[in-house]
């Protein structure tokens, strides 16, 4: 495991996570959450947990982002915080 790579991806995880919570648009939050999941998947693959990374890439970055978009489509994009 290369610690420089690890640290860079961990920083990106924290940034996308905070971004998903700060952005004032729910569709943007859904997309940033997908990016967060994908960064998490990269982190797991450099830790050697290939099965977990594969699951997260298909489930977290793929399907759950689509679920968020579907829910936002059926409700509203408006948010106060």
């Amino acid at each position: 495991m290369i610690w420089q790579l690890d640290l860079a991806i961990l920083t990106l995880v924290v940034i996308t996570g905070i971004g998903a919570l700060m952005v004032k648009d729910l569709l943007g939050a859904a997309i940033l959450f997908g990016a967060y999941s994908f960064m998490m998947c990269l982190l797991w693959s450099i830790m050697g947990a290939v099965d977990v990374a594969f699951t997260e890439a298909s489930v977290g970055a793929g399907v759950s982002a689509v679920f968020f978009v579907a829910a936002v489509f059926r409700t509203t994009r408006r948010t106060k915080d």
Binding site: G17, A20, L21, L26, A29, A30, F33, Y36, S37, M40, E56, G60, S64, F68, A71, V72, T75, T79, K80, D81
Partner: peptide, 17 residues
């Protein structure tokens, strides 16, 4: 602390991950 329900769900998923 978040006021929006979808934001709360995003927070729940982040805690879980």
């Amino acid at each position: 602390a978040k006021n929006n329900l979808i934001k709360k769900i995003v927070g729940m998923s982040m805690f879980q991950t």
